[in-house]
Simulated scan of single mutants.
Amino acid sequence: MDIRGKITKGKLVFLFLIMALVVLPGIAMGQVHSVSKGDTIHKIAGSYNVSQFALRYTNNVWTDSIYPGQNLTIPQRYTVQKGDTLFLIGKKFGVDYNRIKAASNLKVNSINPGQTLYVPIGRAVNTTSRGSFNWAEIDALARIITAEAASESYITQVAVGAVVLNRVDSPLFPNTIRGVVYQVDSGGKYQFEPVLNGWINRPANETAKKAARDALNGWDPSNGALYFWEHWITNKYLKARPVSVKLDAFTFTY
């Protein structure tokens, strides 16, 4: 090939790179970080300029226990452009927009140009299914999520669902979802306040239904918790239990 051919080919490559930058503004490609001795979630997040929450969410790591040699996927940063919606961004990356919303710790669906979001591509979660449940059981799970945590972030809603399922798996509680949700303890008290005040009878919203499915598919942001309580709770028994994680206004305990 003569010099003109080489120049033309070089120009084409250059133009392609420029077009890629225009078409995909604000995207930082995800990376995998191999944990070294002395690494912490705080340090790793700072090194890659991502939030600690997004890093934890992407890797389903909700404690500070990480170890040398462990691989952590770095969430992709995305800068919102004019005309973007969570749905369109999710479609662009092939990720459910609820996961982007959760990784970015958003409580609403509205976003603004210039805002930084985190895309949890390759999020490492426990995908072991919790088993088969009938429609009534799944509906009860979605209803309790709606009643308890409709105003909280998506990840907190999944965690509430996971607590119910953790109780199903525990010998300390009934072995069905409805049994757990509607359980009355030996003192005659309902385990969940929405059952007492009737909020459990309200239809589940769509976000809670998705959160229920995520919990049923094995995602447990509560880290195996059996209890949760909100900041205004004064129950000394709950507050004395070991804490697994704090999400929004909820504290999850064992």
Results as ranks from 00 to 15, higher is better:
residue 190 Y to W: 12
residue 151 S to W: 13
residue 18 I to M: 01
residue 164 V to E: 00
residue 110 S to A: 15
residue 182 Y to E: 09
residue 134 N to K: 14
residue 160 V to K: 01
residue 37 K to L: 14
residue 29 M to E: 11
residue 171 P to W: 00
residue 86 L to T: 13
residue 114 G to I: 04
residue 90 G to C: 09
residue 107 K to V: 12
residue 70 Q to I: 15
residue 73 T to Q: 10
residue 75 P to M: 05
residue 118 Y to E: 01
residue 16 F to H: 08
residue 211 A to T: 04
residue 185 D to M: 00
residue 38 G to K: 10
residue 192 F to Y: 11
residue 240 A to N: 12
residue 143 R to H: 06
residue 112 N to Y: 12
residue 179 G to R: 02
residue 13 V to W: 05
residue 127 T to Q: 08
residue 132 S to H: 05
residue 30 G to S: 15
residue 28 A to Y: 12
residue 132 S to N: 08
residue 38 G to F: 06
residue 84 D to Q: 04
residue 101 K to S: 07
residue 63 T to D: 14
residue 61 V to W: 07
residue 77 R to F: 02
residue 71 N to Q: 13
residue 199 W to C: 00
residue 179 G to L: 03
residue 101 K to T: 06
residue 145 I to S: 01
residue 108 V to H: 08
residue 96 D to Y: 10
residue 227 Y to G: 04
residue 14 F to W: 05
residue 208 A to Y: 00
residue 245 V to E: 06
residue 183 Q to N: 11
residue 54 A to D: 04
residue 1 M to F: 06
residue 110 S to C: 06
residue 207 T to S: 10
residue 114 G to V: 04
residue 40 T to A: 04
residue 32 V to Q: 12
residue 70 Q to F: 15
residue 120 P to N: 07
residue 138 I to A: 09
residue 132 S to F: 02
residue 95 V to K: 04
residue 124 A to G: 04
residue 11 K to T: 03
residue 208 A to C: 02
residue 197 N to Y: 06
residue 69 G to D: 03
residue 109 N to R: 05
residue 31 Q to D: 11
residue 25 P to V: 14
residue 251 T to M: 12
residue 109 N to D: 15
residue 66 I to Y: 06
residue 234 T to G: 07
residue 46 G to P: 05
residue 102 A to M: 08
residue 126 N to Q: 08
residue 205 N to S: 06
residue 149 A to M: 01
residue 24 L to D: 11
residue 7 I to T: 10
residue 206 E to I: 02
residue 237 Y to M: 07
residue 228 F to S: 10
residue 85 T to C: 03
residue 201 N to L: 12
residue 43 K to F: 09
residue 237 Y to H: 09
residue 243 V to I: 09
residue 184 V to I: 09
residue 51 S to F: 13
residue 154 Y to R: 00
residue 4 R to F: 05
residue 246 K to V: 14
residue 75 P to F: 14
residue 208 A to N: 03
residue 120 P to C: 07
residue 145 I to W: 02
residue 206 E to R: 08
residue 69 G to H: 03
residue 122 G to S: 04
residue 225 A to S: 15
residue 241 R to T: 05
residue 89 I to D: 00
residue 46 G to F: 13
residue 72 L to V: 07
residue 47 S to H: 09
residue 31 Q to Y: 12
residue 141 L to F: 02
residue 26 G to N: 09
